[in-house]
């Protein structure tokens, strides 16, 4: 879904979110309460610059509006795959963004992620996956890496990977698989504003994803293996 259509369905006309290139930012009013919105569009690659721009919004929200909820709108092709960004320490910039979001949660901000188009690897791990919880639209797509690059790294045949991406939940890019694995808490369908209202009211602040993955059958071992480590002699 186009970001502006999404914003209009959530917050009405004149919602207050603006795009600057691939970067989205704004303060909206939701049920009479201000909400910080930050994110990306056009399948933005997340390089050092965009990571810092997002971190800036989260830092300003913490400093100027303690407690104000934050909505992350996610549409990314993943981290910027450039040598310059690697030299600049893109992993450190990503960690910084993730730690800003994490700090906001610890200071009592609700942080909700929404994958409204696509999410890949590094761009997702330091946004939706470090929010209180992440949600997605049903037509969204989440994956780790494109198949040609994956084939090169794993040395598995692209044909095998293509076949698995059609059928295998730990491989396939559909959001339903992420729901089953607990990585996405729920899909937002129908009345999107009602879904956001529900998320703001009832999203847990502790990390429940492994438990959800076990209950939903998509990731059966994560929770019990962690528990076995806790219980081991």
């Amino acid at each position: 879904m186009d970001w502006n259509t999404l914003a209009t369905r959530l917050f009405g006309e004149g919602h207050g979110i603006a795009a600057e290139g691939d970067f989205l930012q704004g303060t909206v009013s939701f049920d009479g309460t201000p909400l910080t919105v930050v994110g990306t569009t056009n399948h933005a690659p997340i390089g050092v610059k965009v990571a810092l721009a997002q971190a800036r919004v989260v830092l300003d929200t913490m400093a100027q509006h303690p407690g104000r909820p934050i909505l992350l709108l996610i549409d990314t092709q993943g981290q910027q795959l450039r040598r310059r960004d690697e030299l600049l320490g893109i992993n450190r910039a990503m960690a910084h963004l993730g730690m800003c979001i994490d700090q906001a949660r610890r200071r009592g901000h609700r942080v909700i992620g929404l994958v409204y188009d696509q999410a890949l690897s590094g761009g997702f791990i330091t946004s939706g996956l470090i929010a209180d919880a992440c949600y997605a639209l049903p037509e969204a797509e989440i994956r780790v890496m494109r198949i040609p690059a994956m084939a090169r790294v794993t040395k598995l045949a692209p044909e095998l990977l293509e076949a698995l991406s059609q059928s295998n939940p730990v491989f396939a890019p559909g959001v339903a698989n992420y729901v089953a694995m607990g990585g996405v808490r729920a899909l937002w369908e129908g009345d999107l504003a009602a879904a956001l209202r529900e998320a703001l009211a009832h999203t847990p602040t502790e990390d429940r994803r492994a438990l959800d993955g076990a209950e939903r059958g998509g990731r059966r071992l994560a929770a019990p293996v962690a528990q076995r480590v806790l219980d081991a002699a």
């Binding site: 791990i125 939940p169 730990v170 694995m181 990585g183 994803r209 993955g213």
Partner: peptide
Amino acid sequence: EANAGLIAVSEVMR
């Protein structure tokens, strides 16, 4: 095991 691994790394981060 890409999808499960991605979620796992984010759980490690948290």
